[in-house]
Design a protein around this nucleic acid. Structure first.
Lengths: 226, 226
DNA sequence: CAGTATCCTCGAGGATACTG
DNA sequence: CAGTATCCTCGAGGATACTG
C-alpha cells in the first residue's frame, strides 16, 4: 500500500503494514531463517504469499537472502536490525494493554514448540545429547513433540526420533503457552502440577534452566505485578 | 486480520496493521480530532472506510469518541497514548533508514498546510490576529492557502478570508515540505530564496518562531548530520 | 528443500447517493 | 457536520499442481 505521504510513519506503514509482514520480521528476529521454518511458524499463510512478502522485505532492505549450506536463508540487514527496538515497543505496548488468556484459536502446539525451540537457553543445555518429550493433554489436543538437542543445538520434531528420552514434560497447550509468555510462573505451574516433569532429578533441574521465555515475558510479568 | 497467534507482536499487528489505521492514529496524536479534519489529512481514503476504522479503533480501546461543542471528536485513550513511543520508534526508524526527497505523488500542499497548522508553536503566535498567506509555486502547483491565527489558535483555509495579510510565505511544496521534515534548514532555504518572506521585519522574525516542525524533524537532522 | 505458474474466488473497500 | 446504505468492482491472495 502506497499512501502518498511524505511522512516517516506512512513510510513505516508502507513497508510493514501488509498482512503478515510484521510477523515475518518478528520470526526472523527470533531466529527463523529458512523458508520452511518461517512457513511452519505462520499457519494460515500460503507459500506464494510468504514468498512474495520475503521478496518485498528484501527489496525494502530489511532482509538479505543468503545462500548458506546450499540453502537460501533470510537474515536481517543492518536496516532490519535497527527495527528491533520499534518491534519491541509495539509488543510491549500490546503486553501492557491487552492482557488475557490465549483464545481457543490461538492454541497451537506446533507453533508453541517452534517458539520454545527458538528461545532455548543454549548455554544451559547439557553437552552431548538431550531428548525431551513434550506431551500435550487437553480438550482436543493430545499431541507429542520431541525437543532433541545435540551439542547445544535444539531441534523440534514431531515424529519419534527413537532416542532415549531424558525428560518428559506433560502439560496442556494453554498452560505451557502462559508460562512461555511470562503470564504464569514456571514454579507455580510445577507446584500445582499443570506442568509435570518426569526424569532424573538432574534432567528436571536442567529443564528449568534451558527452558527459555518469550522476549516479552519480562514485560508481561511487570504488567501482572504492576 | 486475525493471525491466531498468542503473541504481543501479532496482537499489535491485528490492531494496527489494517490499511490506514496507523496513519489515523498518527493524525489523532498530532491533533486531528474531528471526522472531516481526519478525512482531509488522508487523501485517498473513503468516508466509509475512515468511519469503519474509527469504529475499530474505538472498539480496540485506542480512541474514545466524545461529544464536544455539539460535534463528535476522537481522542486518544490512555491505551492509545501509551502507543506514542512505539509510533515514534517506527517513524524514527524510517527517518534513519529511508532518507530521500518526497516523490511527485507525495507533494500535496493541502496536506502540508494541515500538518503545519497542527504543529504551529502556539505560544510564539502573536496576540490577537495573524494572517499569513502561503503561495506555492512549482511545476503544476500554484496554490494559495491562508493560515489565520486568532488568539494563538491557528486555522488553515483555502478561500481568501479577506483579512489584511501580515505575512506572505512564497515557496514551492517540495521545499516547504523538506523544511517541515527537518531535511532542509529554514535558515538555508531563506538564504537561498527557495522560501521568500514578505511582510514587516517583525512579522518575518515572528514566522521563524511560530513555524513548527514535524515531530521527526530532530531525528531527520541527526540522520543527516551523522 | 524452496519455491513458482496458473487459475479462480471472494470480500475489502470504492462510488454514489442519501440523512439526522 | 458526520456520517450511513447500497450496489458493485477488482485485485489480493488462496488452491492446486508443478519444478530446479
Amino acid at each position: 500500500m502506497r499512501y502518498g505521504q511524505y511522512c516517516p510513519v506512512a513510510k513505516a506503514a508502507e513497508v510493514l503494514g501488509e498482512r503478515w509482514t510484521l510477523l515475518i520480521v518478528r520470526d526472523v528476529m527470533e531466529g527463523a531463517h529458512r523458508f520452511n521454518d518461517l512457513y511452519a511458524g505462520l499457519p494460515g499463510i500460503s507459500r506464494t504469499l510468504l514468498s512474495g512478502r520475503l521478496r518485498q522485505l528484501v527489496g525494502d532492505g530489511l532482509l538479505e537472502r543468503r545462500e548458506a549450506n546450499g540453502h537460501p536463508e533470510y537474515w536481517l540487514t543492518p536496516l532490519g536490525l535497527d527495527l528491533q527496538p520499534a518491534v519491541f515497543a509495539l509488543g510491549e505496548w500490546a503486553v501492557r494493554n491487552y492482557g488475557g488468556d490465549p483464545g481457543r484459536d490461538e492454541l497451537n502446539p506446533e507453533v508453541l514448540m517452534l517458539w520454545i525451540e527458538r528461545h532455548v537457553n543454549r548455554d544451559a543445555l547439557p553437552d552431548g545429547r538431550l531428548v525431551a518429550r513434550f506431551e500435550f493433554r487437553g480438550s482436543r489436543q493430545h499431541t507429542r513433540a520431541w525437543l532433541v538437542s545435540q551439542d547445544h543445538s535444539p531441534r523440534v520434531c514431531h515424529d519419534d526420533p527413537r532416542f532415549e528420552v531424558d525428560l518428559v514434560v506433560a502439560s496442556d497447550v494453554r498452560t505451557l503457552h502462559l508460562v512461555f509468555a511470562g503470564r504464569l510462573a514456571m514454579s507455580a505451574a510445577l507446584r500445582e502440577g499443570s506442568i509435570a516433569l518426569e526424569g532424573t532429578m538432574q534432567a528436571r533441574r536442567s529443564f528449568t534452566r534451558w527452558f527459555g521465555y518469550s522476549p516479552f515475558a519480562t514485560a508481561a510479568r511487570e504488567a501482572l505485578a504492576g
